[in-house]
Design a protein around this nucleic acid. Structure first.
Lengths: 246, 246
DNA sequence: ATCCGCAAATGACATGGGTCAAATGTTGAA
DNA sequence: TTCAACATTTGACCCATGTCATTTGCGGAT
């Protein structure tokens, strides 16, 4: 096998990627997809708890998670962090770099993780030619914004148990969308990260998991979650927003 | 004066708008500006507490505040709202509609307010031709996202007095950017709205204003704020983020 | 001016969830 | 297998804020 063939094999192909209908290429025509495909870097692999970027670092492109999980977060000088989002396979991150073409937050892996990088300059050039790609970018962007808005509602107005319920429903529906069971899944993040995302203390997360379990709403063993009463979980969250849609 | 001249006079001109260096057109060439200008609707005027859009409503375009002030918010079924952002003259809102081409949150005036609407379909067409306009849009997107991230940090990790200090610094620097005094300004929103934005109770806002005043940090009379010790205010907020840049 | 209605401030009290400390699990390295 | 380091759980205590009730103040209408 010569170099060329090898390179071709190694090259990531969006078309063949099992996540392509969840990721950026969703809705693009084969022609458009091929053009985009040429630009995407081969997946990178990282171990758990490795930093991908930090504030001030140059923005190169949009990241797409293939396997594992990534968290994005800000920190206070005193060290506390606020996790902004968890990014599961098929989801993207890195848009925080768009304002100044430099990142504003941190991104780290939570697990063994592989991801693609879509170089932004190339993507932007393509956007000039492909209206459908532009639309896809807008959608992606609007989705990020709406996720952040839902997170603000959670942080500003929900009680601790509402927050945890909202969180579980969100993870559940994201697994479901990806074809996995919505009732039984493995959380990719630590208790500490959950607490940090929800703006509550780790101890509170522990106590709430115990309480949910005692009420027969779920079974939990380390990171394995089994939702036993989805309806009760939904009743705990009474926003005007439909959590399914985030 | 014939109809045509009248129409031309009424037509809003970005070029002549005093806010143009804060708003979308910032950084566009005169040629690009003129093309964009043709599409922008004349400013609309509304009284205080009028709803501009609500969840589910079709997304027509990006809104730019000319005078007054606008708040965007989500609500829980129980009625509590979470204010997502305050939008002052020269600032934009409405990007929550990008995901599904329908809005996901509410937008209401807080004051007598006038605003422009930039029809999105036209804007998008122009984006195909004008790379510099695309870049401007990305910057806008990124800025919105970063503002929301800072808000999440505030809601998740800051104490009540840190929140109020952060809020005052943000408003102050936004007035400053617009050429007004950073030390003396009129808040366009009610105590209730401040509380709702900060995720705390109205009563807490009252008490904190009193406490800040007793400490000689500021003077406050209804909506008139005079910051007397900006440094102390800054010391109260110890994030890794520079609040000036939001 | 006076009155009305709403916004803001104030006081008294209650509590959700934070903090601290200790115990218990879990994992990975040697 | 054992140990060390770290994650998670549990318990006891308490404080920053929320809640509720009342008062005060302002601004618009008459």
């Amino acid at each position: 096998m010569n170099q060329l063939q090898l390179a071709k094999q190694l090259k990531v192909s969006c078309e063949s990627c099992s996540l392509s209908d969840l990721c950026l290429p969703k809705g693009l025509s084969p022609f458009e997809l091929e053009k985009l495909d040429d630009y995407i870097e081969r997946p990178r692999k990282l171990e758990p708890n490795v930093q991908i970027y930090q504030p001030g670092e140059k923005f190169f492109g949009i990241y797409a998670v293939r396997t594992g999980g990534v968290k994005t977060y800000l920190t206070k000088k005193t060290g506390e962090q606020q996790i902004l989002g968890f990014h599961l396979p098929g989801e993207i991150f890195g848009l925080d770099g768009l304002e100044h073409f430099a990142h504003r937050c941190y991104a780290s892996t939570m697990d063994n993780t592989s991801y693609c990088v879509i170089p932004f300059e190339r993507l932007d050039e393509l956007c000039g030619e492909l209206p459908e790609l532009r639309r896809q970018i807008y959608k992606l962007f609007g989705h990020e914004l709406n996720c952040d808005h839902a997170h603000e509602l959670l942080l500003g107005q929900q009680t601790a148990h509402e927050r945890l319920a909202t969180f579980l429903l969100s993870i559940s529906s994201r697994f479901k969308n990806r074809g996995f069971s919505p009732n039984s899944f493995m959380l990719p993040m630590s208790r500490h990260d959950i607490a940090c995302y929800l703006g509550i203390a780790v101890e509170t997360v522990s106590r709430l998991f115990k309480s949910f379990q005692q009420q027969g709403i779920l079974k939990i063993n380390r990171k394995q979650v089994d939702i036993q009463d989805m309806e009760r979980l939904r009743e705990m969250v009474i926003n005007c927003e439909d959590p399914e849609s985030f």
